[in-house]
Nucleic acid binder design. Structure first.
Lengths: 342, 342
DNA sequence: AAAATTCTGATTGACGTACCTCAAAAAAAA
DNA sequence: TTTTTTTTGAGGTACGTCAATCAGAATTTT
């Protein structure tokens, strides 16, 4: 019951090692009939190529680029750290990761960065950016040059990505709404949703999921129109002041994206945090502290370490043309309260 | 900037390859001074051994045994499935896993199973069992024979385990209490905690954590004495009937171990589920269905796939004498609601 | 200084795969 | 049939490491 090797395939198929090698690496110069014989032997013996031995022989280095927004957001920082930590580990041998920062909130910057990639020196690309037609085109070109592509965090459903690594934003929004509904004890009231920009696909999906559950399960809670923060703390403070004034019956806040710090500071200034249920996204040093300080009640998170490792594993699998172990790559929607902070 | 190999170490240290090998694999026959020279070279060049090449050369097979309770519990079943799936994957190459079932709730059975292990044909052991002096002794013996040991799910803090794989039970109990407190909307009431047996270390810890938070943060909720289920559905039904009769102000149930099915069925029979907050442990086909059916409000879970892979990785690392990538092995306390079921 | 002991070097052969060459065999075309 | 072309076989080297041997060098002991 020991693992079959190329030698076993060769004798099973009644051909030489060289022929097996030619078939396995789809090199030319083998008759169709012989190819079939070899493939039958592979099938029969259940041969799987030892990728590590193969990489050893091939001296392969995986060269991956990660396009991440160059924002001050703590989340991107923790993601970057997780990425470097993962690629340092022995688990990730032969993997070279280059982080390419792109200006946040600038679709042109993303396209420029994509065009700036030297595709001859690249095997895989992970990208975290909103989908625009230009991005789509640039990715299609890169894909054509044989580079594996995964979308990180925010999916690019219409682009030529091979895989999406991140949580289902709609379900994340639904989870936030469920917690909001269960955490608010008042009989009725208004809920404010805050995001950085409603252009991002994940913000839209979160909002949709949030509204769906609130409407259906907790009709006593009413959502106000989404407020866009746009990386501007002053704007946030102003909006918060305004909302608190117009809606004294505000009972909850759902912060869908970054900007948690500005949001918390805004409400703290008005001393409104004690009677508000606050649900935010992503575990960062700031949200962690706010959870412990009881300023945030729950955080919807995704494990950045898992995210980074998953992206690397998937890119590697795509490069090798190997199947992905789906169960390991499904990123869970974490509910973090102050009692189960990792 | 290419990865240094043993050859580089050899020339850097001015010794031969054989000597480098002797040092790296801590074989004897090298002068202390030479060892130092080699280690300095390793340090200087930042050499890390290519474990895959090493395993290739060594033709090592890791033989691991998993001692799991032979209970009808769905949880153990899903764990077993996750284990087999993980050891099938290419990620877990050269790993042989044998599952050894032990009679549940029978400390002697565990000891017998431990003595029945052929330690000459074993490299690592994962064990899920309560800690008794006999178990402790048996593990100490196995440890002395050079076998790596990890405790699964329920820690064996005083035994000779190398590592514990599972969640912090105290924190899990605290998390359950937090959710209970936030989910119950009544002004006051009683909370019932149910477990299989208060002998198990994790049940005790969960209860402690649960009580601590409830007492401190939600003093309007009162916990009743823990009820022990003891794998007996009839007993459970009877107890439930009794509790409901004596405590009409029951508002919540915390099910700390297995037996969720008997518990739910007991309350369902009395039509009490609608106005009770139910928090249970472990995601199984049953709890998943009960979540979706709104009979359970939240499940405190740990990802069994992660658990299995983590145990395998840790055993392998211990066999290799290699450091563990802690961040990857920390099992998170998952809060599962009906909106974020994985 | 000689003998005994401890270290070290040089070398070899795995492990499973990739990739290359050269010659021989088989098939196809003339 | 002969020639040309296409397939195949046999063999080698390499990747980075382990494991082993044996001879010779360095060190310590007598």
């Amino acid at each position: 019951m020991v693992k079959p090797t190329v030698h076993d395939i060769a004798s099973e198929a009644g051909v030489s090692l060289a022929t097996v090698d030619r078939v396995l690496n789809s090199r030319s110069g083998v008759r169709a009939k012989t190819v079939e014989r070899v493939q039958a032997a592979v099938e029969k013996l259940g041969y799987v190529r030892d990728t590590y031995a193969a990489n050893l022989a091939r001296q392969k280095q995986y060269r991956f680029a990660f396009l991440l927004p160059d924002s001050a957001s703590q989340f991107v920082g923790t993601l970057k750290a997780a990425l470097l930590e993962a690629s340092d580990t022995h688990l990730m041998e032969r993997i070279n990761v280059k982080v390419v920062p792109v200006p946040a909130q600038d679709p042109h910057g993303v396209v420029r960065a994509l065009h700036g990639l030297n595709t001859t020196k690249l095997d895989g690309l992970a990208i975290m950016a909103p989908e625009t037609p230009q991005v789509r085109d640039a990715l299609a070109r890169i894909k054509r040059e044989g580079i594996a592509i995964v979308a990180l965090l925010s999916d690019l459903p219409n682009a030529a990505r091979d895989h999406f690594v991140g949580i289902n934003s709609y379900a994340a929004g639904r989870t936030a709404a469920f917690l909001m509904g269960r955490f608010v004890h008042k009989n009725r009231g208004k809920v404010l949703t805050i995001t950085n920009s409603m252009l991002a696909r994940d913000s839209i999906d979160r909002r949709l999921g949030f509204d769906a559950v609130l409407l259906q399960e907790f009709p006593h809670l009413m959502t106000l129109p989404s407020v866009e923060f746009r990386d501007d703390a002053d704007r946030m403070a102003m909006i918060i002041k305004e909302v608190c004034a117009t809606h004294p019956d505000l009972v909850g806040i759902y912060s869908m994206g970054s900007g948690n710090q500005a949001m918390i500071e805004g409400f703290r200034a008005l001393a409104r945090l004690d009677d508000l249920v606050v649900i935010a996204h992503e575990l960062t040093p700031f949200t962690r502290k706010a959870l412990l300080g009881k300023e945030i009640d729950a955080v919807i998170a995704q494990n950045v370490g898992h995210l980074a490792r998953s992206a690397l594993r998937i890119l590697r699998a795509k490069c090798d043309g190997v199947a992905i172990f789906e169960a390991q790559e499904r990123i869970r929607i974490d509910v973090v309260t102050r009692e189960n902070i990792p």
